[in-house]
Design a binder for these strands. Structure first.
Length: 288
DNA sequence: TTTCATCGCCGTCTCATCAA
DNA sequence: TTGATGAGACGGCGATGAAA
């Protein structure tokens, strides 16, 4: 094996990739740390997804199947991005499997005086099994509109899914998609609302990761920031580390990774940041 | 034809185990 | 106690087939 590593280009590349972020991900993150405009676009992309969905829904006419798909896609991406950017960059499967109903619910909706959403992941659902590393995550109502976007998703987009509205969810013989619009087809004798916050278009199960990857790829490209779902984690970590190397521990906790892993993945930022911080220290010494 | 679910492959990451 | 290693889980993504 050692010999093979010395001779095989493929294995050499694999060994290298194991130690650092992939070139593709670095290519995505670099503009975020270098370009203020890109950074702001990344951090507020949920607004743009929401605007796209609202544009599609701004009609009194029945939606076509394609328009319905687009509205669901942009709306779901807005909700997902709000969780990642205004709450915590959860792993994709954890976010897609959030449940706000039922005995295993792990997403608490705003109620009473509380205006925030609360994510309460169990250690069993996390890649990191250490319970101490699984904090509760508040998604607050503030200027970044995390909670507002989730509330909008819940009230406007989620009911566009067959199992997204308890007042008219079909249990058997689902209505044609064309009729699934703002609850126009109602059957109060039926109630099978999905327990999942993000719902699969054709069942009451959670939105599948493959379909979501397709949606986020398409939606992000449409707003001029092509990315994958996992790029939320990479992007946020890169931005925070670029601000200061002292954020290393903070970023590790934020991502649910170990500091060693963060240091290894974002070494390319560290090198540049170390040089810049050192230059600043020299300038401080020189100019007092 | 379009949309979506499922499957599978490869890379990445965490964790448990073991040797130094 | 620390570092190396391998197993297993998860992320990323394409291929394929079923259903509308």
């Amino acid at each position: 094996m050692v010999k093979a590593k010395k001779t095989s280009e493929f294995l050499k590349e694999g060994e290298l990739a194991d130690d650092e972020m992939s070139p593709k991900n670095i290519a995505f993150c670099r503009p975020l740390v270098d370009d203020m405009r890109k950074r702001r676009q990344f951090l507020t992309q949920h607004f743009e997804y929401r605007r796209q969905a609202e544009d599609i829904l701004a009609t009194d006419k029945m939606l076509s199947a394609s328009q319905l798909r687009q509205a669901r896609m942009f709306g779901t991406c807005a909700g997902f991005a709000a969780i990642e950017l205004c709450g915590s960059p959860l792993r994709v499967t954890n976010a897609l499997q959030l449940r706000h109903r039922g005995p295993t619910s792990n997403l608490v909706l705003p109620r009473g005086k509380a205006s925030h959403f609360l994510v309460k992941l169990d250690a069993k659902e996390m890649k990191v099994k250490d319970r101490k590393k699984v904090p509760q995550i508040k998604i607050r109502k503030n200027a970044l509109e995390g909670a507002q976007t989730l509330e909008w998703y819940r009230k406007t987009i989620r009911p566009l899914f067959p199992y997204g509205n308890e007042e008219w969810c079909p249990v058997e013989n689902p209505q044609p998609l064309a009729n699934v619009r703002f609850g126009r087809v109602q059957d109060r004798s039926r109630s099978a609302e999905s327990i999942y916050f993000f719902i699969a278009p054709q069942s009451g199960a959670h939105l599948s990761k493959s379909l979501f990857y397709e949606w986020i790829s398409e939606a992000s490209a449409a707003i001029g920031m092509p990315m994958t779902a996992h790029n939320f984690r990479h992007g946020l970590a890169s931005i925070l580390l670029k601000r200061s190397l002292a954020n290393l521990e903070k970023v590790a906790k934020f991502l649910g990774n170990t500091p060693a892993v963060v240091q290894r993945n974002y070494a390319w930022i560290n090198v540049e940041a170390v040089i810049e911080e050192t230059q600043d220290e020299i300038m401080d010494e020189a100019l007092g």
